[in-house]
Computed example of a mutant assay.
Amino acid sequence: MAPKEDQNEIISKLIQGCIRGDRGSQKELYRRFYTLGMGICLRYANSKPDASSIMNEGFLKVFMHIKTYDFNRPFTAWISRIMTNTAIDYYRTNLRFSNNEDLHDHQYLPISIDAIHDKLNYQDLLLMIQSLSPSCRTVFNLYAIEGYSHEEIAGMLNISIGTSKSNLYKARAKLMEKLKAAEAEAKHGNTITGSISKDVDFND
Score class of each variant (00 low, 15 high):
Arg96Phe: 09
Met38Asp: 06
Asn46Lys: 15
Gly21Arg: 12
Leu142Thr: 02
Lys4Arg: 12
Ser53Ile: 01
Ala77Gly: 10
Thr76Asn: 11
Asn121Tyr: 00
Phe75Cys: 09
Asn94Pro: 01
Gly162Lys: 10
Ser112Leu: 00
Ser12Asn: 10
Leu179Trp: 01
Thr93Tyr: 07
Asp6Trp: 02
Phe202Ile: 01
Ile11Val: 15
Asp199Val: 00
Ile196His: 02
Asp50Phe: 05
Phe63Thr: 13
Arg137Pro: 06
Ala144Lys: 01
Leu29Glu: 07
Lys174Glu: 03
Thr68Phe: 04
Asn141Tyr: 08
Asp50Gly: 05
Tyr30Met: 12
Gly39Lys: 07
Lys178Glu: 13
Phe71Trp: 04
Thr86Asp: 02
Phe140Ser: 06
Glu5Asn: 11
Asp22Leu: 10
Leu60Glu: 09
Tyr108Pro: 00
Gln123Arg: 11
Asp22Gly: 06
Lys198Leu: 00
Asp22His: 10
Met64Gln: 15
Asp70Ile: 04
Ile153Glu: 06
Ser135Tyr: 06
Pro3Ile: 13
Arg92Val: 03
Lys187Thr: 08
Leu95Thr: 09
Gly21Leu: 07
Ala182Gln: 08
Leu168Ser: 02
Lys174Thr: 04
Lys165Arg: 15
Ala181Asn: 12
Ala2Met: 07
Asp70Tyr: 10
His188Lys: 15
Thr93Ser: 15
Thr193Met: 05
Met55His: 06
Ala144Leu: 02
Lys180Pro: 00
Phe71Ile: 03
Asn46Phe: 07
Ser47Asp: 09
Asn99Trp: 07
Arg23Tyr: 03
Met83Pro: 09
Asn100Lys: 12
Asn8Ile: 11
Ser80Thr: 09
Ala173His: 04
Asp70Phe: 04
Leu109His: 00
Leu179Ser: 03
Asp6Gln: 11
Arg92Thr: 05
Ser53Met: 02
His104Ser: 15
Ile159Tyr: 03
Asn94Trp: 03
Phe97Ile: 10
His106Gln: 14
Met128Phe: 11
Phe202Cys: 01
Gln7Phe: 07
Ala45Trp: 06
Thr86Ser: 13
Thr138Tyr: 07
Ser12Tyr: 08
Phe140Val: 12
Leu36Lys: 10
Tyr34Asp: 10
Leu60Ser: 14
Gly162Glu: 08
Ser112Glu: 01
Tyr91Lys: 13
Thr35Arg: 14
Tyr148Asp: 14
Asn190Glu: 13
Leu109Ile: 00
Pro3Glu: 14
Cys18Asn: 10
Asp114Gly: 01
Arg137Met: 12
Asp118His: 05
Leu125Arg: 07
Thr84Val: 15
Thr138Ala: 12
Glu152Cys: 04
Leu60Val: 02
Leu132His: 10
Tyr34Thr: 05
Leu29Ala: 06
Thr138Ile: 12
Tyr44Ser: 09
Gln107Gly: 06
His65Arg: 12
Arg172Thr: 04
Leu132Cys: 13
Lys187Leu: 14
Val62Met: 03
Asp105Gln: 15
Asn94Phe: 07
Thr68Ile: 07
Leu60Ile: 04
Ile196Arg: 08
Ile111Tyr: 03
Thr193Arg: 08
Asn167Ala: 15
His117Ile: 02
Tyr122Gln: 12
Leu60His: 07
Ile54Trp: 05
Pro49Cys: 04
Gln107Arg: 11
Glu151Ile: 10
Glu9Trp: 02
Ser133Gln: 14
Asp50Ser: 14
Ile116Thr: 00
Glu5Pro: 02
Leu29Asn: 10
Phe97Gly: 01
Thr193Gly: 00
Val200Tyr: 00
Leu42Gln: 14
Leu95Glu: 07
Ile192Trp: 05
Met176Ile: 00
